[in-house]
Measured scan of single mutants.
Amino acid sequence: MQIFVKTLTGKTITLEVEPSDTIENVKAKIQDKEGIPPDQQRSIFAGKQLEDGRTLSDYNIQKESTLHLVLR
C-alpha cells in the first residue's frame, strides 16, 4: 500500500509499505529516499509519536494515510 510522509519543509514523500511493516522499517525506507538517519526521525500520526517496534497496523495506518516527519 502507499502512504505519504510530509516533512516540515512541506515536501511529501510517497512510500510503498505493508500494514505489517514496523515503524523502524518505514524510517529505513525514508532514509533510502531522503538520506535522513532513522535516529533523527520522529514520525507523528494523528497527533501521536510512533514507536519503532510497533507496526503500521498497530496505529491503524491505512493506505494513503499521511505521516508527519519531524527531525530531532
Rank of each mutant, 00 (worst) to 15 (best):
N25F: 12
E64L: 12
I30M: 04
S20M: 09
D32T: 11
N60R: 06
R54G: 06
Y59C: 02
V17W: 02
I3H: 01
F45P: 02
K11V: 09
M1N: 01
Q40I: 11
I44K: 03
Q41G: 06
I13T: 01
T66Q: 05
R42T: 15
V26I: 12
A28D: 06
L69A: 01
R42I: 15
D58H: 12
T66M: 08
E64G: 15
A46F: 15
T7H: 03
L8T: 13
Q41H: 10
E64F: 15
R72V: 14
P38C: 09
I30V: 08
L71A: 10
R54N: 09
K29D: 02
R42N: 13
I3V: 05
Q49M: 14
L56W: 00
L50A: 02
I30R: 02
K48L: 12
D52W: 05
R72F: 12
K33P: 06
P37H: 11
K6G: 03
L67N: 00
K48N: 10
T22Q: 02
T7R: 05
E64S: 10
A28I: 13
E18R: 14
T55H: 05
L50P: 01
T14E: 07
P37L: 08
E34G: 08
Y59L: 05
V26K: 00
Q40T: 10
Y59W: 03
L15W: 00
D52H: 05
I23Q: 00
K27Q: 04
S43I: 15
V5K: 00
T9F: 13
T55E: 01
E18V: 13
I23T: 03
Q41V: 15
D21M: 10
V5A: 03
G10V: 01
I61Y: 00
E24D: 08
T14V: 13
M1R: 02
S65M: 11
R54T: 05
I13E: 01
N60L: 06
N25G: 08
I13L: 09
L67V: 08
D52S: 07
K6T: 09
E34R: 05
E51M: 10
K29S: 03
I61T: 01
I44P: 02
Q31M: 13
S43K: 06
R54W: 09
E51F: 07
D39Q: 10
D32K: 12
I23V: 09
T7P: 02
L56F: 03
D32N: 10
K29I: 06
V17D: 00
K27T: 05
V5D: 01
D32G: 08
Y59P: 02
G53N: 13
E34Q: 08
T7L: 15
I30H: 02
R54I: 06
L67P: 01
Q49K: 10
T14I: 13
S65K: 03
G10K: 03
K27W: 11
S65E: 08
E64R: 08
I23Y: 04
E24Q: 12
Q62M: 10
T22S: 07
P38E: 09
Q41K: 07
R54M: 12
L69V: 08
F45L: 05
L56I: 09
